[in-house]
C-alpha cells in the first residue's frame, strides 16, 4: 500500500543477482584533475571485494555543458556510454562523479519518451539502451557492501576526526531521478564515515551548490558560493570537508587560494574525497590513495584528530581513575588504562 507524501523515498532496490560486480565508468575528470578519486575508489572497492569492470572504450557523457546546449545531444553522448556499459553484462554501472551520474540517469529517464528516443538514436546512429543502470560509487558502497560490512573491515579507525560531509547539489537531486538517499538531508556518506570511526558533524549545507562549473567562466560566482560552504564547515568545527564530486573538490581545494582571496579569509581545512578517508580507515597505504594529490595537506588534520583523541583518552582515564573500570565502557581505545 502506498503511503502518500513519501515521494522522496527511493524505490526499493531490485534484488541483484551479483551485487559484488559492477560496471565502472570513471568519467573524464577522474583521468585528469581528479585522478586520486578514481585511484582511491578502485583501491577501496578492491579491498571491500567489489569488482569493478571498466566500461570499454568509454567517452565523455556530456557532463554539465551538453544539456545546457541541447537535450538530445546530451542524451546521445550519455546513451553511447550506457550502451558500452551493457557490453560488460553487469546489472548496474557505478560512476564516482555525480555530474556524470546525472547525465547518465537523465538520459535513461527521458529515453522512455518515444520522440526523444528517436532523436537520440538518430544522433547516436543506432539503438539506445532501454534503461540507465547508472548509480554512484557512493550508492554502490552503501547498497552493495553496506556500512556494517565496512565497519567490520575498518583496520585504522579515524577516531576523533571531525568531518563535514558535503554531497554536492546533484548527488541526490532531484529525488525522482536520482532515487537514492534523502534529497534534503542525505546520510549515505555520513554512514560510511561513521563506519570508518570518524565524527560526522551536522553540516547543514550538505547539498548546497559550490559554484559547479563556473570556476572558469564566472570565477566570482563560484568564489562566493564556495566560501559560504567553507565558512559553515568551520562554524561546525570540522577538521575536513569530505566530498564525493570532482568539481566540488576542485572548487574547494585547488581553487582555495582564489576563494580565500575573494572572501578575505584563510580557510585551511583539507578537502579529501570520501574514498580517500575510507581507504585510510581500511588500512590502505597512503600511496594507493594519492593523498599527495590534495592541494591542502590532509596530514595536519589527521594529526590534530589523533592528538585530540589522545587527550580525550587521558582525561577519561583520569576521571575513571577513581572508579573501577567496567568492561564495555564507552572508551574502546586499546591504550586506555582499563584495557
Amino acid at each position: 500500500m502506498s503511503v502518500p507524501g513519501n515521494s522522496s523515498a527511493s524505490p526499493a532496490t531490485p534484488a541483484l543477482t551479483n551485487p559484488k560486480r559492477l560496471a565502472y565508468y570513471p568519467g573524464c575528470s577522474q583521468s585528469g584533475t581528479a585522478a586520486e578519486y578514481d585511484i582511491s575508489t578502485r583501491a577501496c572497492c578492491a579491498e571491500l571485494g567489489l569488482e569493478l569492470v571498466d566500461v570499454p572504450d568509454w567517452t565523455c557523457c556530456g557532463s554539465t555543458p551538453a544539456h545546457t546546449v541541447d537535450h538530445h545531444l546530451a542524451g546521445a553522448l550519455a546513451a553511447r556510454n550506457l550502451r558500452q556499459a551493457e557490453a560488460t553484462g553487469c546489472e548496474r554501472m557505478a560512476t564516482p562523479c555525480p555530474s556524470c551520474l546525472a547525465a547518465l540517469r537523465t538520459a535513461g529517464h527521458h529515453l522512455h519518451q518515444e520522440a526523444y528516443r528517436a532523436e537520440v538514436e538518430h544522433l547516436l546512429g543506432g539503438p539506445a539502451p532501454q534503461e540507465s543502470t547508472a548509480i554512484s560509487v557512493l550508492q554502490a558502497l552503501v547498497e552493495n557492501i553496506g556500512p556494517e560490512a565496512i565497519a567490520t573491515a575498518v583496520k585504522k579507525p579515524l577516531t576523533g576526526l571531525r568531518v563535514a560531509p558535503y554531497y554536492g547539489c546533484i548527488m541526490n537531486r532531484p529525488p525522482e531521478l536520482m532515487a537514492f538517499d534523502d534529497p534534503e538531508n542525505p546520510t549515505a556518506m555520513d554512514r560510511i564515515l561513521a563506519a570508518c570511526g570518524a565524527t560526522v558533524v551536522p553540516y547543514p549545507f550538505k547539498t548546497e551548490c559550490c559554484g559547479a562549473a563556473f570556476g572558469m567562466p564566472r570565477l566570482d560566482v563560484m568564489q562566493r558560493l564556495s566560501a559560504r560552504l567553507l565558512a559553515m564547515a568551520e562554524e561546525c568545527g570540522a577538521d575536513v570537508v569530505v566530498v564525493a564530486c570532482p568539481l566540488c573538490q576542485m572548487n574547494l581545494d585547488l581553487r582555495r587560494g582564489q576563494v580565500n582571496s575573494a572572501a578575505k579569509a584563510d580557510y585551511r581545512m583539507p578537502v579529501p574525497y570520501f574514498t580517500q578517508l575510507l581507504g585510510l580507515a581500511l588500512g590502505l597505504p597512503e600511496s594507493s590513495l594519492c593523498l599527495d594529490k590534495l592541494v591542502l595537506d590532509l596530514r595536519p588534520a589527521l594529526a590534530r584528530a589523533e592528538e585530540r583523541e589522545r587527550k580525550r583518552a587521558e582525561e577519561s582515564a583520569a576521571q575513571n581513575g577513581a572508579k573501577p573500570c567496567k568492561p564495555g565502557d564507552a572508551s574502546h581505545k586499546e591504550d586506555a588504562p582499563c584495557a
Binding site: 554539465t64 544539456h67 545546457t68 546525472a102 547539489c169 546533484i170 537531486r173 532531484p174 529525488p175 534529497p183 534534503e184 547539498t207 548546497e208 551548490c209 559554484g211 559547479a212 562549473a213 563556473f214 564566472r218 560566482v221
Partner: peptide, 17 residues
C-alpha cells in the same frame, strides 16, 4: 547562470522541473 543544481526542481511544490 543557472548551474542546474536542482534545488528548484527538488523543492517545487507543483512538481515542475
Amino acid at each position: 547562470l543557472c548551474a542546474t543544481c536542482q534545488a528548484c526542481t527538488t523543492r517545487c511544490p507543483n512538481n515542475i522541473d
